Simulated scan of single mutants.
Amino acid sequence: MTGLAGIAIVFVMVFGGYLAAGGKMGIILKALPFEMIMIGGSAVGAFVIGNSMGAIKHTVKDIKKVFKGSHWKGDDYRDLLCLLYQLLRLARQNAVALEEHIENPEGSAIFAQYPRILADGEAVAMICDTLRAMTMNYDDPHQVEEVLATRLEENLHHAMHPSHAIQGMADALPALGIVAAVLGVIKTMGSIDQPPEVLGKLIAGALVGTFLGVFLAYGFAGPFAARLKAVEEEDAAFYGLIQQVLVANLHNHATNICIEVGRQGTPTHMRPSFSDLEEALKASKAPA
């Protein structure tokens, strides 16, 4: 919603200010289709050249995140802490019983309580892979932390590609606008024998190219890339919380302490209060 509001504000402030200053939309509207073909088309073409088909699909798919925001909400962080609490508690009480949950999470009564987390393959894989390694005595906290950190870094690098691709387009748009403007000047020079009023309109049309390139770069493509980067970093914190809790468990801290480590590591605006989490943990004891 804020994304749509931002787009509306950009249009209203730029063109509203232009009209309020006495500008006329006729020249812009007349030149706009041709300038969009040159600038927008070449930007899309450069984007296709610079990215694989998988990256293109990934970017197109992720555009909606600019408007929807982070996939993980505050309730999801609370649910993740409850899920980890139940699994760690079971691991300490009966390691054999834990195996059925981590070997077949789709059929697990514990995972089934948290369908949004269960639907995310990476979150489930991180939890199950790490807990499985612990049952095989791979329990050096520093090694596990390093392995998980490498995994998180690789996942974030992959998730950031759409943001980098859009930022690359934003960087190219002003230059492509200049290209369109130069072509407009070339067109104008071919009509140098025309009267001043005709030349004025041709020059104005050429300058629309420069305006459009800068406008699209700094009004849309750049902010889109920045917002997408922020969303991906926020979503990455969800997986980072898994690392923090599981590594704390390997340091043999009490289960409640491990969960508190995770709560403290939750982004501030998503962090459940101590009392809310305590109530959720108490409610989660029965099915565990």
Rank of each mutant, 00 (worst) to 15 (best):
Q167C: 05
G168S: 10
T255W: 07
F215T: 02
K282A: 15
H164M: 04
A21T: 05
L81H: 14
R92G: 15
H251C: 12
A119C: 01
D235R: 01
L98T: 10
G3N: 07
A165W: 03
L83K: 04
A95Q: 09
M38P: 02
D235I: 01
V12N: 10
T255V: 15
H101I: 03
K201G: 15
E100Q: 15
G168M: 08
I7S: 06
T210G: 04
F34G: 06
V214D: 04
E100N: 14
A248H: 04
V185E: 10
E234W: 05
G41P: 03
G213L: 08
V10H: 03
S284H: 00
M134P: 00
V96E: 13
I242F: 00
G222S: 03
F34V: 11
G74V: 03
D129I: 11
A181P: 00
F220P: 07
I56K: 04
A286Q: 13
A280L: 00
M53C: 06
H158S: 09
L4S: 14
L176V: 09
A230P: 01
F47M: 11
A217D: 08
K285H: 14
G177Q: 08
M38Q: 13
L148M: 15
R263G: 08
L183T: 13
V12Q: 03
P267W: 08
P105A: 06
A109Y: 08
V247P: 06
M126K: 02
G168W: 08
S284R: 01
T255A: 07
R263Y: 10
L98W: 07
K61L: 07
Q194H: 12
R89G: 14
P272C: 05
A181S: 12
F220W: 09
M134K: 06
T135A: 07
S70T: 12
K229P: 00
G262V: 11
L202M: 14
D129K: 15
T2I: 11
D276I: 05
E35I: 06
D129C: 05
L118N: 07
P287D: 04
E278W: 07
S52T: 13
M1K: 13
L246S: 02
M13E: 12
V14T: 15
L84N: 02
F224N: 00
N137T: 14
D120F: 02
L32A: 15
A46G: 10
G41A: 13
L212C: 06
A31T: 11
A225I: 02
F211H: 06
L250I: 09
I166K: 08
A91D: 07
F67G: 09
G168E: 03
G190Y: 07
K24V: 11
D140N: 15
A91M: 13
M53V: 12
F274H: 15
K64Y: 08
P162S: 08
G40V: 10
G184P: 02
V12D: 07
K282E: 15
C128R: 04
V124A: 10
L148P: 02
G184L: 10
T150V: 10
S191E: 14
A8R: 14
E260G: 02
R89Q: 13
L84Y: 12
Q264Y: 12
M270D: 09
G190L: 01
L83G: 04
D140E: 12
G205P: 04
S70P: 08
Q93D: 03
F67C: 05
R78L: 15
L212P: 01
V124F: 03
I49M: 13
I186E: 05
T210F: 09
I49H: 04
L246D: 04
F34Q: 10
D171R: 11
F15D: 00
I203A: 07
